[in-house]
Nucleic acid binder design. Structure first.
Lengths: 271, 271
DNA sequence: CGAGCGTTTGATCGGTGTCAAGGATCGTGG
DNA sequence: CCACGATCCTTGACACCGATCAAACGCTCG
């Protein structure tokens, strides 16, 4: 099924950022069955309402989730990059409530949902990082809700630029102060719930204020701290440094208290 | 630890809406260790930045997630009711990126995070319903992002009223066309990203249009279909009827293809 | 009866949307 | 090498939705 060995290395790398894995865990992740799709700009991976039988791992380039509301207005719900998992567990819901589409040329691995459930059962440490990836995604989604709900246009846009910069830095595809913005102004409008015209004017304002630089490929952040301030941006919710700070989650503690934990025999996630 | 046997029955009931459970699974859910908290209006269960060591199950009343952005503006991120789990897996992130607070008087069970991880390992069928609860929560979060991002005030508010009606009906605490709205107009403003003044005017408009009735305790939806139309509301994303429609998820299929699935011996979610 | 909270109203302001057009850039094919 | 179309970016004039400010009303509960 796989076209290339180690194709899932970016995904493994991101999962290892969430917790230490054994060699067996790493092998299991890399061995996940998958097909690789090379995507032209705007290609659809899922459409709203599709039966959900698989999930996505981004290998290169960018993709987004989106919804269409009302009379065709479009809202981007998330942006994903190298190493990110998309809808890892959403097959549990049976069908998709949103579309997934590439932003620019990209490569993605499509993994059957059952393989993820197998992995969670057969390699719980790896499974735990899958769950972390899922709740992290939810954390970002909450921040986006707050972003479009309670911030004005300038703050909103600055916040998105900061988030993308930090995430791209963490994913190894740029630096927070210099990265290739994967969004057109129209897409940035759909991210922020604004119109393209207003996005354009706000970007000009940010340039005029010296927060970002004039040329746009690549996006250069001239003054990171000021942009973060302007965007009301605190990066905690992205947890890009969770591993390195040595923080341990309550789950670690819980399990440390039960070193003899054993699984029920013959258990499965089957309903 | 538990004050009352069967206190978690509403939670079990919701989980059973996601998949069929065995008697052992049901027992395991009801036996989750927990403490019961009786909450006055506005009591905090978590505060933003708290160490995340436990999760919440709502037993009665309502609670919300929220964030404070910028200079004190508040955004409600979700509303939870009887049977809902809140942040079931968020302890995996180590700390909380949002606050959780009661809306009106309420009762909630506080469950140690480790107990959830134990349950997922020891009773995978029950664990599967926990995961479904988690991805369902994410699905609702995405809809809220789209709601505040791309709908105008009237549509936004109508949408929230429809969602709450359907969910309260599913939770057995009201009917979609007649329920006790757990939100003040100020809270409804924080849900929709509007000001209290504008919320008030929009509600008056909905009343004048005959979509909802004049008295506000309880909220009476005079014309459900028109309110759903006005709110651009399609309830698919809530999956309140997933069980009854007999839909099966890809995970079922995946596991049916591997009836001899066995877990790795001695596995755990410990990192 | 008064305090506190939630709701309602009016007047005005301003941020963002809308409409319309033009300019810049880039890949492609003649 | 240039012409061309497509896509993206930019600009201007104007309209409007929803915010802001300020005040009053109406519950409910001690």
């Amino acid at each position: 099924m796989s076209e290339a060995p180690l194709a899932l290395a970016p995904f493994l790398s991101k999962l290892e950022g969430h917790a230490r894995l054994t060699a067996a865990d790493r092998q299991a992740v890399l061995a996940l069955p998958h097909t690789i799709r090379r995507l032209a700009p705007g290609d659809h991976l899922f459409r709203e309402g599709d039966r959900a039988t698989s999930c996505i791992v981004m290998l290169s380039g960018f993709a987004c989730r989106h919804k269409i509301v009302g009379e065709g207005a479009r809202q981007l719900l998330s942006v994903h990059m190298k190493g990110d998992g998309i809808d890892l567990l959403d097959a549990l819901l049976g069908s998709t409530d949103h579309g997934v589409q590439s932003l620019g040329p990209a490569e993605a691995a499509v993994i059957p949902a059952a393989a993820i459930s197998d992995l969670i059962l057969s390699h719980p440490a790896a499974g735990r990082t899958i769950l972390i990836e899922t709740v992290l995604d939810a954390s970002i989604q909450r921040e986006w809700t707050a972003n479009v709900g309670r911030r004005d246009a300038r703050t909103r846009i600055a916040h998105v630029l900061c988030e993308l910069g930090v995430r791209m830095e963490a994913a190894g595809v740029g630096r927070r102060d210099r990265f290739d913005l994967p969004l057109t102004q129209e897409q940035l409008a759909d991210v922020t719930g604004l119109t393209i015209v207003h996005v354009n004017r706000v970007l000009q304002g940010l340039r005029a204020a010296g927060l970002i630089s004039r040329g746009k490929r690549p996006m250069k952040v001239a003054d990171w701290q000021s942009l973060a301030d302007a965007g009301d941006f605190r990066e905690d919710y992205l947890r890009t440094s969770a591993r390195s700070t040595g923080k341990r989650s309550a789950w670690d503690l819980g399990f440390e208290a039960r070193p003899d934990q054993r699984l029920a025999q013959g258990a499965s996630l089957r309903s």
